[in-house]
Design a protein around this nucleic acid. Structure first.
Lengths: 209, 209
DNA sequence: TCCTAGTTAGTGTTCAATCACTAATTAAGA
DNA sequence: TCTTAATTAGTGATTGAACACTAACTAGGA
């Protein structure tokens, strides 16, 4: 029984299945056949919608990109302390990773690192934008006296992103045996305390969970 | 004209070529044929020395492991401040990565993540040992009053490792357009300053490069 | 001479990709 | 409004390339 759907609808189905399976099988073991099975098509059917497999990956990158941008936007509109907006941003990012674990998997895949140049630059662009967001918030926090200002906000942002990435790697390698968001919040507190003005600046006991 | 070498010598040749090519082609695009070409053998010649390709990867892991342990050992014997030993350790690790860029590549390969369980546990063990080394040094630094002691040394170690990993990812994705060791030293200083006792603890101007 | 590093020739499998074709859907015109 | 032409989603069969791995043979050197 053939189920015919609009190209639009199929494309989203295929992208969703790819994200799900990229997590389950790993981005590099993922075959067009597996995707086809998941959406109920034959293997060549995939190629009607994405002429090359690379095209599929690029569509996935675009999807992931818009997921990120959406959440970043939401985290940004919070009008609180700049440091709280950093917390919100990192927390949003960690929740996204936790709910879409294919993201770090793709970030470390051969598909990205050695095969697909488009995919690589898409993710590089995302990372750069994320970096800018954080660096700007750090700058604001410094200006508002929430953080010291004897360091380069870009460096601070790199460190914070490293925190997220290190966490994602450990989470992934460990078989995901801890809560990403929770662990991340704890480490971020430690990190922000390090960037904060003087010792005992009053929020040492801050509890975020 | 055939050049015959001892199995021992060939094995090291093959492992070296694998490390070189794993960087150049990516660990997952690396074929036995490419390796054979590099060492001047025919493709099946490889299988005389490593009956399965997995065996080759495990030998590579062992080699990388011993490279790391050697450098860690060297960094440890430095009898200075505990924080200086952290600096030495991280710097040694970054120099190793810079001179053997296949290491992060392997760490993110499908070979490790989904195919080769032995490889995965070898690297997992290495990461754990690295973490323990740093956590212990942090503990010592806290005890010696070089760092605050209002945080968990394990957390601090995770953050420091995250710094290294984030750096490695960025280095790799960016096409290696910056000096890993230099950038790492700068970020580590910022990080250690955050862990240090009180503000202006005197080493803010420390220069490590 | 005999052990073993290395070769030549070949197999089985896994995939992306292609091609000729069919069935469902849409739209035009009498 | 109903027939029919055009479009587009999907299929079945297959192909060709890439690769790990094998078996049987060959030659180098203590």
């Amino acid at each position: 029984m053939r189920v015919r759907k609009s190209a639009e609808a199929r494309k989203t189905e295929i992208i969703n299945a790819t994200l799900r399976l990229a997590d389950k099988l790993g981005p590099d073991r993922l075959t067009t056949e597996a995707i086809a099975d998941a959406v109920g098509l034959t293997q060549p059917g995939i190629f009607r919608h994405f002429p090359k497999k690379q095209d599929l990956w690029e569509a996935v990158a675009a999807r992931v990109g818009s997921m990120m941008e959406t959440r970043w936007e939401k985290a940004r509109t919070d009008d609180a302390l700049a440091t709280d907006r950093i917390r919100a941003l990192i927390s949003a990012q960690l929740r996204l990773i936790q709910s879409t674990p294919a993201i770090p998997a793709i970030l470390f895949s051969r598909e990205l690192h050695s095969k697909n140049k488009g995919l690589r630059s898409a993710f590089f662009g995302l990372m750069s934008r994320f970096h800018r967001l954080i660096a700007d918030l750090v700058t604001q926090a410094c200006a508002a006296g929430e953080l010291r200002n004897d360091f380069d906000p870009d460096d601070a942002a790199f460190i914070i992103i490293g925190l997220v990435q290190g966490l994602a790697v450990r989470w992934s390698i460990s078989g995901r045996n801890f809560d990403l968001t929770e662990e991340g919040s704890r480490l971020l507190e430690l990190q922000l305390k390090g960037f904060a003005l003087g010792r005992g600046s009053g929020n040492g006991e801050r509890n975020v969970s």
